[in-house]
Design a protein around this nucleic acid. Structure first.
Lengths: 189, 189
DNA sequence: CAGGATAATGAGTGGAGACTCATTTTGGAA
DNA sequence: TTCCAAAATGAGTCTCCACTCATTATCCTG
């Protein structure tokens, strides 16, 4: 869980007040978008950050830029979480974790659905794919996932089920039962 | 595939021009919402129907009413399609059909996701559940689906995968590979 | 074929939300 | 301290869209 960066990429260093506000905005945006989803208004982010709306737009010229900034962070977290796992069950654990978190990570889910194109982060999504690909290979090496399974359908299922869990408001039991079916489908016969 | 009803439920019979326009609006709405999804504007529906915007609102006081009217039709079609299938493979066939159609039936998918609450059609969604439940029972009786599988997770997977296919723009191959995993998970071990 | 009821019309209203910019405030280098 | 470039401010613009309503046109009944 790395810190929120206080500076945009490149350019001259920011003034102290600008650094402070940039962080406030990012923190507020992560809260707001995590709670409400990408549809939340920029106005609400500004209010929560305690700055004027114009300040938000000075730091992030479009709403997409703001969304992109926090997505990058959230995605990095996900990739890190995938990287920490491994072995025969790592893929299943990651799947379970993501699904369970879906309810309070509306934004990531929204991003994944778009393949990152909505906020121009295809590379980041690519990295997640790689990380999941690693988990898949390990699981297949350990014999817990059928060798005929490939990465695209694993990503497809990951995104679909996570979205379903989020928008369908699945309770813990339904989540477990649904994942059980998917996992049974992934395991060798 | 029943015809578009030319009269609203109850009330006195409509004038000839009103009947004509009502049908035009429903046809246009089905086209527009099927192409663009529930976010399409009422203005666009009116344009496509060749009537003024006010006429649309005279027939359907809110956008939700209009959506509800066409959803009812589309859902009925789905339920009918489910009802026509059966045997060991009926459930798999229905699953496959719905997924393949997702790309041009954005509206139904949107509705299913909301459980019908967005347009007040929970009974209709309930009927679809029943139909799928019938397919599930038949498949289990035929031994093609594991007896431990229950209806809620089947519906959850149906909705998730259909949504994924739609929003992820899956090609035929990915669709097939993803469904293969799900079907393997449903089949007895 | 009148004439009143029914329906169609489309400019207008209201609200939401992304984004702008003239003005004011503030940080920090000299 | 001085002073100006950087930054903050927030009312205002623009666009989109659901929805309204006074006016006009069209049915259809007697």
């Amino acid at each position: 869980m790395e810190e929120v960066s206080s500076r945009p990429a490149g350019g001259p260093p920011l003034r102290a007040d600008a650094q402070r506000n940039r962080i406030r905005i990012l923190v507020a945006a992560e809260e707001v978008f995590t709670e409400t989803g990408p549809g939340a208004s920029t106005e609400e982010v500004a209010r929560r950050a305690g700055v004027a709306i114009g300040t938000v737009f000075r730091h992030f010229p479009t709403k997409g830029d703001l969304l992109g900034a926090i997505m990058k962070r959230l995605l990095a977290e996900l990739i890190e979480s995938a990287g920490e796992r491994g072995g025969g069950e790592g893929l299943f654990e990651f799947f379970t974790e993501l699904t369970a978190q879906a309810s309070y990570k509306r934004t990531v889910v929204g991003l994944l659905e778009s393949g990152g194109t909505a906020v121009r982060l295809p590379e980041a999504v690519g990295h997640l794919s790689e990380a999941v690909g690693g988990l898949l290979s390990e699981a297949q090496a350990a014999g817990t996932v059928s060798p005929s399974v490939e990465l695209p359908e694993v990503m497809a299922l990951l995104v679909s089920v996570t979205h379903g869990a989020l928008h369908g408001g699945w309770d813990a039991e339904l989540r477990e039962r649904t994942l059980a079916v998917v996992f049974a489908g992934l395991r060798p016969r």
